[in-house]
Design a protein around this nucleic acid. Structure first.
Length: 106
DNA sequence: CTATTGACCTTCT
DNA sequence: GAGAAGGCCAATA
């Protein structure tokens, strides 16, 4: 498998997230082989923050909290986008039990 | 060029 | 069970 840049790998996985589902940094990092590189995953998303090609709003932390909501421009934009896709929320957290999507193991 | 931080998670103590 | 530290990759100061 051609291991491109760490960023592109993250983007490719995030791009494959089905609409109405969310995933976590840990799962993405684990899918890439490095489960501890969750921090770098955040950087990859930050590099595409504002792009529609990659739904970074579908990526949440392990607790289901929208940790990077302040990186979107408006703190509520992330939640608005998810709600618009049919994602349900439990208070300020996403229902991972319902919308948790696990990326393909590579 | 070195040091620190950053949308985090896992494991040890 | 709770707290602290380590680890990963990249960007910024």
């Amino acid at each position: 498998m051609m291991e491109r840049d760490f960023f592109e790998q993250v983007w490719e996985i995030v791009r494959q997230i089905p609409r109405g589902s969310v995933t976590t940094y840990g799962h993405i990092a684990a899918a890439l082989g490095t489960r501890s590189a969750a921090r770098t995953v955040g950087w990859a998303l930050n590099a595409v923050a504002g792009r529609t090609d990659i739904p970074a709003h579908r990526v949440v932390n392990r607790c289901g909290e929208l940790s990077g909501r302040y990186h979107f421009g408006t703190p509520t934009l992330m939640r608005e986008l998810l709600e618009a896709e049919g994602v349900t929320f439990d208070g300020d957290r996403v229902r991972l039990d319902v919308h948790l999507w696990i990326p393909p193991v590579r």
